[in-house]
Computed example of a mutant assay.
Amino acid sequence: MSSNQEIHAKFTQDLLHPRYWLTWLGIGLLFVLVLLPYPVIYQIGKGLGLLARKLIGKREETARQNLKLCFPHLSDTEREKLLRDNFISTGMAIFETGMAWFWPDRRVKKHSKIIGDDYIKEVQKNGQGVLLIGIHFLTLELGARILGLSHPGVGVYRPNDNPVMDYIQLKGRLKSNKYMLERYNTKGMIRALKQGEIVWYAPDHDYGPKNSTFAPFFAVEKAATTVGTKILVKLAQPAIIPFTPKRDSKGRYVVSVTPALQNYPLEDEIAAATFMNKAIEHEILKAPEQYMWLHRRFKTRPPGEQSLYSDDVQND
């Protein structure tokens, strides 16, 4: 790691220790599988997702509860179909991650399309930084690679506890990023934005009570929402641009870039969180079956309020 805390992938001999051989084997298998024709990859991913649904019951209940909380207007049948499709996308996410890390540029371009990237170009013409809102779609890893082919930026990530996975993750993500920053490196993000860079940022998960406020998210009145967005916008004054990577029915990945959000309410913390959640909702609705519903989005509750999850899904 350099003095300014930019993170780059660095291979060391320690990564070849026998304790990591199983990890290398898994990575090698993924590398081989994503060499297959896309229709075959999709069928394997679909099967894996449906199998996972049977094996990880607690996660299934988490996703089902999230859908019930967010979309109470849907019937049980509609939510169950959405849940099934979501598990198919969860299985595909493993292979889409491998595609993002291992596919050559030409194959990525063959299966992808970008809509609205002129919005990014317009902002950067003026030297303004871009806070790119990378919502946690299951296709996010591949979407970042696709957009990064024409708009490389600065990635924000959480280091993996397994050093081999961390190395492979970094090496893969650096195909679409200039360098990476740890997710708590706010100073590094502000510096990059002030330098006119694109910074990938995902404010849609529940990151706990610290540095969060409660704001509406879909039909949930009080969802823990990071205040980090407000800090970055206030100090670096970037354009806020969401983007959504969506897999279509023909196996093509369409990355849609939204025009820069206007009138962000800096003066009020809750209003700012509400504003951002509304923007995130708008993007999720473009492909709700491809969003990461397995995350316990509403695990943090205001003091004195009961958990929104039953006892059998308390462990995240």
Rank of each mutant, 00 (worst) to 15 (best):
M189F: 04
L174W: 07
K194F: 07
Q195A: 15
R173H: 09
Q195N: 14
A192M: 11
E182P: 07
M180D: 06
Q169R: 11
G196D: 06
E197R: 00
M189K: 05
Y167C: 04
K187Q: 14
K171W: 10
N177R: 15
I168D: 08
N185V: 06
G188V: 01
N185R: 04
W200S: 04
E182M: 09
K171C: 08
K194P: 07
Y184D: 09
R173S: 06
L193H: 03
L174E: 15
K178E: 10
D204Y: 11
M189H: 03
I198V: 12
D206V: 13
L181Y: 01
T186F: 02
I190V: 14
T186S: 05
I198G: 02
K171G: 07
N185H: 13
N177K: 13
N185S: 12
A192K: 06
R183H: 15
V199K: 00
I198T: 05
M180P: 11
L193M: 07
M189R: 03
E197D: 12
K171N: 10
R173I: 02
L170G: 14
Y179K: 12
G196Y: 02
R191E: 03
L181S: 05
T186D: 01
M180R: 04
L170A: 15
G196S: 07
P203Y: 02
V199F: 00
Y167N: 05
I168F: 13
G188S: 06
I198D: 01
D204L: 11
P203L: 03
N185L: 07
G172N: 12
M189I: 07
R183N: 14
L193T: 04
G188H: 01
R183S: 13
D204P: 13
K175P: 12
I190T: 07
H205M: 14
G188N: 04
E182W: 01
E182K: 03
E182H: 09
W200N: 03
P203D: 07
I198K: 00
N185M: 08
S176Y: 06
L170D: 08
Q195W: 05
Y167S: 05
Q195I: 05
P203R: 00
G188W: 00
